[in-house]
Simulated assay, not measured.
Amino acid sequence: MLRLLTALLICCFPVAVQASSLPSFPFVTVSGESERGVMPDEAVITFQIVTFHEKSENASAQLNRTTRQALEVFADHNIPDRAITSYEISKNEVRERDSSYNQLGIIGYQFRRNFQVEIADLDKYSAIVLALLDIDYLTFQQSSFDSSQRQEVELELIAEAAAAAKQKAEQMAQGLGVTIDSVFAFNDTGSFEEFFATFGLNRAVYADMQQMRTSAPPPSVDQELFIPESIRIYKRVNVIYKVQP
């Protein structure tokens, strides 16, 4: 599905500038968007282990036991060690508080460690998550899904979005009786605001020009504890074309 966002900017249009002037030639700006639903084939899960005991050695020992349980789950499903990232262990004193929330004496120690695991085979996802949920002291945090073909898909989407932007620019130029000359600037990550910042265009003026366009934020992927049938990959291309009167 393609959606096109357009805006026409003429260099003689009165604008407020800050550091420098706008380009000294007529130009037109266009945006092309493209998105595609792709079946996910990999996931990343994150979880943390939190233990508490009045003695540090007991809390630490429980953290180690729970960590071994989690690692056994991954070993049982042939998840390689390189796919498992463990973060630094944190240790905090836990103090008793009075009715005014003033800290009193130490009542114990809390140990915490975060983990991130990449699952390249989604057939293993459900069994791994269910096994982790059965482990005491382990809190499951999040699953995110992706496609191993993302880079290839994004390249195709960029090409589609760029083609759509060019087609729209040509249609606008024809309707206005001008000719598209050449590409002056483009990007696929930022917005026209970054472009015009180079020429000192006032942010308020840019906001006014934005009202001439219909825009929508990039689609997002809801991250739930189930495997979605598809994920949406989105690309947007912003292009500034020089025009000949």
Rank of each mutant, 00 (worst) to 15 (best):
R232G: 09
A162S: 15
Q18K: 09
S220E: 15
F52Y: 01
A162F: 15
Q48F: 13
A207Y: 02
M39N: 07
I79N: 01
M209A: 09
L122K: 03
V30G: 02
Y234V: 11
A70P: 00
N78S: 14
P219N: 09
I135H: 00
P40G: 06
E93N: 08
S147N: 11
T67F: 12
A197S: 10
F192P: 00
L104R: 14
E54D: 15
G175N: 07
R232C: 14
F27T: 03
V153H: 04
V15R: 02
F196Y: 05
P245L: 04
L122D: 00
Y206R: 00
S100G: 14
S182W: 05
S144Q: 06
E42Y: 12
A185Y: 08
F27Y: 14
T198M: 12
D181G: 02
N102P: 07
Q18R: 06
P217Y: 03
E156C: 06
V117S: 06
Q116T: 15
S143Q: 07
Q48G: 10
N64W: 05
Q110Y: 01
Q167H: 09
G105E: 15
P228Y: 04
Q210V: 09
S191F: 11
T189D: 15
Q110W: 01
L176R: 05
F47H: 02
A61G: 04
A120Q: 14
E229L: 11
R113C: 09
L8F: 13
L176K: 03
Q116C: 11
N64S: 10
F192Y: 02
R82A: 07
V153C: 03
L157K: 01
F199Y: 12
D146S: 07
V205H: 04
Q171R: 05
